[in-house]
């Protein structure tokens, strides 16, 4: 259960340095960021600005080189690999640009996956998967494989997979990047609906058309937050 006064995401002085062949690349350089429960935040910025790195750390897929990161009040720095996986499973739902569905699994099995890793009983899994697929309008494609779906449909399935475990936050990394504009709009409408129902969403995008869906936009440049823009202003600028 979350308290609206306590940030769901709390990052302080976050840095990330990649070391390759004695070359240091500073992907993040002292990021301070709080995201409250129920918020819809977009992270924008040019390629290489550190957007995806920030989202990876937020999603416990990566660890910061320096700084503090708390997820729903839990400090992340001392978590073991296993604890990170468990927390990721329960608290976070991922939506990727390239959908990242497993080709050898059906729609149902793809959506079911987070519940399997949570050891949810199979009868309960079935119900939850159906509900999630109904939410995204894909309940009629349960036994299809990803290759039998359009890009927009695949992304809706990916959204269902992100939703099915009822996570605290949905992390979307360029969710419309591989979609045509019509499908992109559909996915964004879906996310908007989810947010309206209370979901917390953090989305990375560099497409200004979709910034309007968020309540708050953070601009990252060279690993630092350089600006926070009001979406209404942005929309007017488009």
């Amino acid at each position: 259960m979350t308290n609206n006064d306590t940030p769901l995401i709390k990052m302080a002085g976050l840095k990330k340095v990649f070391l390759t062949d004695e070359v240091e690349t500073h992907a993040l350089s002292g990021v301070h960021l709080d995201i409250q429960p129920g918020a819809f935040v977009t992270i924008a910025g040019p390629s290489g600005g550190g957007k995806s790195t920030l989202l990876s750390i937020m999603g416990l897929l990566d660890t910061p080189s320096e700084g503090k990161y708390e997820l729903n009040g839990h400090p992340s720095e001392n978590l073991s690999v296993r604890e990170r996986a468990q927390l990721r499973n329960k608290a976070i739902g991922f939506i990727f640009q390239s959908f990242n569905l497993i080709g050898d699994l059906t729609v149902f099995e793809n959506v079911e996956l987070p519940l399997v890793y949570r050891n949810t009983p199979s009868t309960k899994r079935r119900t939850m998967v159906r509900e999630a697929l109904e939410q995204v309008g894909m309940e009629h494609r349960l036994n299809h494989y990803p290759s039998q779906l359009s890009g927009g449909q695949q992304q809706r399935v990916a959204v269902a997979r992100a939703l099915v475990g009822k996570p605290l936050i949905l992390l979307a990394d360029e969710p419309t990047g591989n979609l045509d504009s019509r499908s992109g709009e559909q996915v964004m409408s879906l996310l908007k609906g989810l947010h309206a129902d209370g979901a917390t969403i953090c989305m990375v995008t560099h497409d200004p058309r979709y910034l309007k869906y968020a309540e708050r936009t953070i601009h990252l440049f060279d690993g630092q937050i350089v600006d926070e823009t009001d979406p209404a202003v942005l929309e007017a600028a488009i």
Binding site: V81, R82, A85, R88, N89, D104, Y117
Partner: peptide
């Protein structure tokens, strides 16, 4: 590898 990464992203730990 991508498949393994996806499984991992939705909560599969190394043991699993």
């Amino acid at each position: 590898t991508p498949e393994i990464a996806i499984r991992s992203s939705v909560g599969a730990d190394r043991h699993r």
